[in-house]
């Protein structure tokens, strides 16, 4: 089993794990990964899309959509019809 750097995985997932949590998350993740490692030999299986399994896409045309004001009602912070986030460009 590969070593797991739980802090690195947390960072990739945009999660903060403090030192007090790191230990139990580390142990749990190791146990879960040990479980999911049980997989059969699948070297003879070639994954390909099934041509019978067509996905039916809708026509690419404009139609009614949700109103901006209604969507912004759920935003933690909005102003002048935009979502507000902390400054990203100096």
């Amino acid at each position: 089993m590969p070593g797991i750097d739980v802090k690195k995985i947390a960072r990739l997932s945009r999660l903060l794990i403090d030192n007090s949590e790191a230990e139990h998350f580390q142990r749990e993740m190791e146990n879960i990964i040990a479980m999911v490692e049980r997989l059969p030999d699948t070297s003879d299986i070639v994954l390909r899309l099934n041509p019978e399994d067509k996905m039916e896409l809708r026509a690419d045309k404009t139609g009614p959509s949700l109103k901006r004001d209604e969507l912004l009602k759920n935003a933690p912070q909005s102003e002048a019809g935009c979502f507000v986030v902390p400054k990203v460009v100096e």
């Binding site: 999660l15 993740m29 902390p86 400054k87």
Partner: peptide, 27 residues
């Protein structure tokens, strides 16, 4: 800052099982 806001919002907003599954997925 922005990244800190993402991380804190997600860490305070999600419970442990959801965090475990997100991290397993990322791994």
């Amino acid at each position: 800052n922005l990244i800190d806001m993402y991380e804190r919002s997600r860490s305070e907003g999600f419970g442990d099982e959801v965090k475990r599954r997100i991290m397993l997925g990322a791994f």
